[in-house]
Each structure stands twice: as C-alpha cells, then as structure tokens.
Amino acid sequence: MLSELLQGTDSGGLLVIQDTCRYSGRDLLRSFISAALSRGDVVHVLGFDVDEEELKDGLKTPDSQALHIHSAYADPLGWNDHSAFTVNNFNLEELTNLVKQTSDLKPATLVIDSLSWVLRHVAPPAVCRILHQLRKGGAVRTVIALLHADLHQRGTVGSLSHLASSLITVAPGVRANEAVAKITKHLKSGKVIQDEEIFSVNEDLTVIVHSKHPEHKQNDAEEEQMDPTANLTFNLRLSDSEAEAKNKLTLPFVFSKEKSETFSRCFFFKHCKTFQFYLKCIKCKNNCFVLQENRSTSSRYGFWADSL
C-alpha cells in the first residue's frame, strides 16, 4: 500500500507520517516530495526542522520550477527579523496565499516538515482546524506532514491521526536500512484499511517495499539465527541404550543391601583412641574404610574411603 500512496493514486487528503526518535521519517517524507515532483505536481514545502539544502539533498530535480521551499529553519520565530515565513504565518489565509501566488491553476501538494514544530507554537485545535480547512479550500490537493509522535501528548497525536486520511507510522526494522511502516488508510466510504510493510529508502529517494507481511519476515530472521546447540562436542540427551546402561550402573559409595552383607562378612572392627573405628579387610589386610563417630548425633556414622 506504501507504493500506492507514493504514486498518489487517491484523490488527495491529509497524509501524516509519524516517527519517533528511534527512526526518522524524514527520508520517507522526502521520497514523497520526490514522487510528487516526478508526477509533475507543484510542491510547496514548509521547512521548520531542517534547512533547505538538506531537504533538497538527493532530489532528482532540486532546482525544479515546481518545487517551492518556504524555509523557516533559520528564523522560525522572527528573532532575527529576516525571515519571510515564520510559524506565526501558519494560518489559513497566509498558507492559501502562499500556495496560490506561485502555483498555476493546478492544485498543489503542501509538505510540512514538521508538524511538531508548529504544534509547539500553535494550539493543537487550531492546527487541526487549519489542516482541515486547507483540504476543503481547493488550493491544496494533498497535505503531507511529518509528526514526531513522541514529543506530544497522546491526545494531540490521536486527534491528528483521526484527521488524517492516511497515516504512516514508521519504526526501525530488524535489519539495518530497513524500516517498518504501519499504514492506516481511511476510505471515503468510511472503510478503514490497515497494513504493515517493510521498506527501505534508497539514496535517490526511491522506496523499495520488501515484504507485505513483516511477521513472516521476522520469523524467518529468527530461524536464520544460528542454533546454539549445533556442533556440540557432547550430547545433550541420552539415547535409549545409553539410558538403559546408565540405569544399570550402580554408583560407588551407595549403600545397598549386598554391600552391607559384605561389610559384616569381610571386615572386623578395630577400636582406636580417637573415637575412630577402623574397618579392616580380612582378605587384603588394609584399612579400607574409616568409620568416625559423629559426636553431635551419636547414632549415625559416616563413611570415608581411606585407601581404596
């Protein structure tokens, strides 16, 4: 759906690109400018956030007659007294005049970079009203605005999202250079279409849509990750035969019935002064086990291997 929006097949409206400080939506915005210029539309840009050079950077026809940049970057509030356009000029009459004085009879595309700057100085209800009236006014066919969503309260972002006929929320993608766009489009019939696409912006500001189903893409990426249990030098699980052999094995120092019988048969006790009992094997005549009296709980005995 992103490429449809770029082609501008629909009949205008308000398109809002929402970004956060994790991923800037300005590349996508400039792609929209580039696409509109290549269609032959007249484009007016209100630049607050970045200077004219950066906006034009990468455009195929930066000196096109159809591109009019009204830069308020250097002096947006009129502090230096040499700005043609300031944020105070952001009202319906001046914007309409601005668009009408240069363009022909053809309705123009108005790009706002960014609405966040405007919202800092113009009250949100007034901004919404101006944007709504611009669409109704006839001089402007499409308004494309960038909005840094994390700079505003949720209510402000929400009301602008409701006003927008198309809303693109951009976020960083899994891989470098890729980003995820969540697109919400309100049709005139009242139907709402939602879509999610992975895209990247090239240096010549063309947009490549990689996938329409990012969920699958993400799963693939997860599967592509290396399996940490591959190429191990040992087995994590036993096979059936190994498990059987393991169960058969009797561990040393486990006291079983047969062992106790062996003890009673082949050892005799030798008392020692230090409260220790030596168990001596009759056959080999060696001290095989030491039996020590446990003083705290005198009823129990512990076994130690002495010279096995």
């Binding site: 994790r22 991923y23 800037s24 590349d27 050079e53 950066e54 950077d57 960083p172 470098a176 250079n177 912006v201 090239n202 240096e203």
Partner: peptide, 11 residues
Amino acid sequence: RRRRRGDLQHN
C-alpha cells in the same frame, strides 16, 4: 550516531 547529510539513515 544519527544520520548525517549525504548518507541515508543508519542508526
């Protein structure tokens, strides 16, 4: 590092 002019976005 955020993007600089000239090269495209790679944070």
